[in-house]
Simulated assay, not measured.
Amino acid sequence: MVLLFVSVLQDLFAIAQDQPFRFPATFTFVLRAFSTLEGIGYILDPDFSFAKIAAPYAQELLDIRQRQRTGTQIVEEIRKQADDARSYTMSMPYRVNRIEEFVKQLESGDLKLRVRVLESERAARKATILQMATMYTVLGGTLLNLGVTFTSQGNQVIANGSFIGAGVFLTLTLRSMQRVQRLDKFEKMI
């Protein structure tokens, strides 16, 4: 029986190579499952035949399908399939032309594909926030340094303004770092 099954598979694959259609990918898994079942059955019982067991079920399925459809339903289904084939055949040159237009536009650079990568967008947002935090830190540190310098020179009004500016930039730095922490927390949740 296994040899019969193997020869049927070889015939099916030979037919598939000569024809323009292809079997669905799941067909391979179904055949593998059937061959596994037959192999297990044969090991357990040398007289086991998967075909003999499956035949009544397959016949029942065929009988049910034939009973459910009347002659007019079959004719209607064939007409619908013919209409579908005609419409696909009629629209095929248009579709091929559209594909050729797209390819020409891509080759000439007239059409550009834009792909969004959310991870890189989040990383860019985080980098921007960190860059601003660095800038705030540098400006705050500079103003703090100026405040200390003006205090030592006795110019207290300008020194106080510098200290206030340094405090503002320190606050902005802390807020930026909080935003970075929120982004990190959000990324961990994803």
Rank of each mutant, 00 (worst) to 15 (best):
M1F: 10
M1N: 09
M1K: 13
V2S: 12
V8W: 09
L9T: 02
Q10E: 11
L12I: 13
L12G: 01
A14G: 05
I15Q: 10
A16Y: 08
Q17I: 07
Q17Y: 00
F23T: 10
A25I: 14
F27E: 10
F29Q: 11
V30Y: 00
L31K: 01
R32M: 01
R32S: 03
G39I: 01
G39N: 06
G41P: 09
D45H: 02
P46V: 05
D47S: 08
F48H: 03
A51Y: 09
A55R: 11
A55V: 07
A58Y: 12
Q59W: 09
E60R: 13
L61N: 03
D63S: 12
D63Y: 05
I64S: 07
I64M: 08
Q66R: 14
Q68I: 02
R69G: 06
E77I: 14
I78M: 11
R79S: 10
Q81I: 15
Q81F: 04
A82D: 13
A82R: 12
D84P: 12
D84N: 15
Y88F: 15
Y94M: 11
R98L: 13
E100W: 14
F102K: 12
Q105P: 00
E107F: 02
E107T: 09
G109V: 13
L111W: 11
R114H: 15
V115K: 13
V117T: 07
S120L: 07
S120Y: 12
E121P: 00
R125I: 10
I129K: 00
L130H: 09
L130Y: 00
M132A: 03
A133E: 05
A133K: 05
M135E: 13
Y136E: 09
Y136C: 06
L146D: 04
G147A: 07
T149F: 14
T149N: 13
S152Y: 05
Q153I: 06
G154T: 03
Q156R: 04
Q156K: 08
Q156L: 07
I158Y: 05
A166G: 14
L170S: 15
T173K: 07
L174V: 15
R175E: 02
S176Q: 10
R179F: 02
R182H: 05
R182Q: 04
D184K: 14
D184Q: 10
K185R: 06
F186K: 04
F186V: 02
I190G: 12
I190W: 07
